[in-house]
Design a protein around this nucleic acid. Sequence first.
DNA 1: CAAATAGTGTCTGTAAGACACTATCAG
DNA 2: CTGATAGTGTCTTACAGACACTATTTG
Lengths: 243, 243
Amino acid sequence: MTEEAYLATYNIHDYDIPLSSVDVVIFTLLEDRLQVLLVKRGEHPSKGMWSLPGGFVDIKNDRSIEETALRKLRQKTGAKVPYLEQLQAFGSSTRDPRGWSMTCTYFALIFADSVHLHSGSGAEDVRWWPIENSKVKTKLAFDHADILKAAVNRLQNKVEYTSLPVHLLPKEFTLTDLQQVYEIILGKSVDKSAFRKRTKDANFLEEIAGKFRTGSNRPAQLYRIAPGHPTVFFPRTIGTNKD
Amino acid sequence: MTEEAYLATYNIHDYDIPLSSVDVVIFTLLEDRLQVLLVKRGEHPSKGMWSLPGGFVDIKNDRSIEETALRKLRQKTGAKVPYLEQLQAFGSSTRDPRGWSMTCTYFALIFADSVHLHSGSGAEDVRWWPIENSKVKTKLAFDHADILKAAVNRLQNKVEYTSLPVHLLPKEFTLTDLQQVYEIILGKSVDKSAFRKRTKDANFLEEIAGKFRTGSNRPAQLYRIAPGHPTVFFPRTIGTNKD
DNA sequence: CAAATAGTGTCTGTAAGACACTATCAG
DNA sequence: CTGATAGTGTCTTACAGACACTATTTG
């Protein structure tokens, strides 16, 4: 049999295969806390429970799993591409009551004000939930609590040696703003001098010439992400010695 | 409708869903080179081409994707659990000619002598292929060349700050053996003194008291992995300054 | 002036890199 | 003894942490 003949007779419905979906852990900073976007499920299974935004791959319209993730993101937040990174696949016979299921999870970082929440189809409600100890204060559907924990874990790890947190800020921000993001995510204070040295040495920010944030104190230089400088990896981790 | 009623009427075959599979990138060290296990496909599609060991989830017998990966590993190598870590999911409409497909990939490290290769069902041949520049010298099926590249990348990254390479060695080995594994994977030489200091400080090895490898030179102390010491993360990366 | 926050300078500590040195075997 | 590889010691360098210091604004 030729490859063409084989493919002509191949029918996916002849096989018992797992369900496959994509879920997205969308983080933001709100009220000085790390928060995650959850949707209240409007449909079975787990109707009425809060869960991560996600759903099945639309094989007609999504060309890749990343597109599925972006679609979900756009659907719920209306925002354009923030920071998006694949987290981990979870797959088992028990995680979904409909049967063997595999989900590919992503995590995203976004500046809260650039988001307009939409419930969209299949959801009764959408809102930000503050994260405390890698958890939210409601029971999540499926194994989403595990996924959330893995995502927070990954975020906290990467924050120690990368410039990821810039994606939680608006386009223009001060170094102190950025330092606070690090402190909130890490849950501990960071030395100002060390933070500034390493941030400046990494060269992923550029001063906005002559632009300052003023107040009843010395004005603070505003910065933006330097064009063409994606995520930076620092030579060492931060915040490992203190507190 | 109750959740129970919904589940009773739910039929997976009513939906167009992606194929889902698991592929494993199995690395070993052979003839002083990093090598990867490939199987020659005995079935369509891409019959006759070399590919990574992998296949569909067996929803009757695999309780999780990790079990699918372990099953594939055992099938081809006959070896018990070496080091196994989830790499990344790849999913798109184009990666498999049978249709939209998502694969969850793993990478494994194993000591070559503990392996007895079996073609198993669906394969015409199995063998180790040396890796050069993140590639092998044959065209791979599907998007397996991309997967291999991602796996080598991840391995090289992690080798810079973890103790992963011990899993490519036999139970007993010398520090020089281990250093050579680092050098082979990183593709550059490593300072002996620095290497030994950091390895010993990390405390994941234990001397095998009184056991040495002899030769026409000073005998070398043999070490084994200290029980209960999984992968160690070093405080800083190695080999970033010297060639 | 005080209060507040921005931003810098100096010293210390830690772990990696360079490289020379000593140690112990076979023959 | 030589040649080979094992293993150590010392000095340097890079970068984070501690912490005090100066700078610039409003009121």
